[in-house]
């Protein structure tokens, strides 16, 4: 019973979503919006659980004096500061909360994002060492595509890098991409069926899907 009821709910909800996608009747559209509201409400409750987990994790780290627990202090203090400013002054534009968000949170996120350039360089260096046929092919294709994207290739007269780059992107590249997407679409259909029909149950904690 512990498994049958969630499977039945999953099947009914999934089947309803499938039907409403194809039937534009007002009843289905309204019910769809109603269900979406339920999802938001569940999400709000889950956020409380998430925050509880966040606090417990960091308080445990501080209490047990685990290595680098200083960062747990930073997390909790940052949370408290943002929470107090948000509650006292609101979260609208030109408030203290908004100022902190724009001048602390946003630059920090931009910093982490910009690290991507360095990671890309180190990953490219490791991959483009032409130690195998595949790596050599990858290196050659990457060089052509990169040269096709920069103005300096205009000064090369013997090869049209722009055209070669476009051909690589739109013919072999696109073919591979479409092949992957077709496989993904089939995988999505199969996984959805598995869950709707209750064949796969491990997400319910039921050990479905057999033993490992």
């Amino acid at each position: 019973m512990r498994l049958q009821i969630p499977i039945a709910i999953g099947f009914l909800a999934g089947f309803f979503m499938l039907v409403q996608f194809f039937v534009p009747h007002q009843f289905f559209q309204q019910s769809y919006l109603e269900l979406f509201d339920w999802v938001k409400i569940i999400g709000a409750f889950a956020l409380v659980l998430g925050l509880g987990s966040l606090f417990r994790t960091h308080i445990d780290k501080i209490r047990n004096r685990r290595p680098d627990h200083i960062y747990s202090f930073v997390t909790l203090i940052s949370f408290a500061v943002m929470f107090v400013f948000g509650i006292v002054y609101g979260v609208k534009p030109h408030t203290s909360f908004d100022w902190l968000f724009k001048n602390v949170q946003t630059p920090l996120e931009a910093t982490v994002f910009s690290l991507l350039a360095f990671f890309m360089a180190s990953a490219a260096y490791r991959t483009f060492r032409a130690r195998s046929v595949e790596a050599t092919l990858l290196l050659t294709v990457a060089v052509i595509v990169m040269l096709g994207r920069v103005p300096i290739s205009d000064y090369v007269s013997f090869v049209d890098f722009h055209e070669a780059s476009e051909w690589i992107m739109s013919v072999p590249g696109m073919a591979a991409k479409r092949g992957i997407l077709l496989g993904v679409a089939l995988g999505v259909v199969a996984t959805a069926l598995r869950i709707l029909l209750g064949i796969e149950r491990s997400h319910l904690g039921g050990g479905g899907g057999g033993s490992s």
Binding site: I180, L181, G183, V184, L186, G187, V188, A190, T191, R194, I199, E200, S202, G208, G209, G210, S211, S212
Partner: peptide, 17 residues
């Protein structure tokens, strides 16, 4: 791609999956 969706079935070895 699709191997992500196949992984659960592959690891379980359940005949149905």
């Amino acid at each position: 791609g699709e191997e992500l969706y196949a992984a659960g079935a592959y690891l379980s070895r359940n005949p149905l999956l």
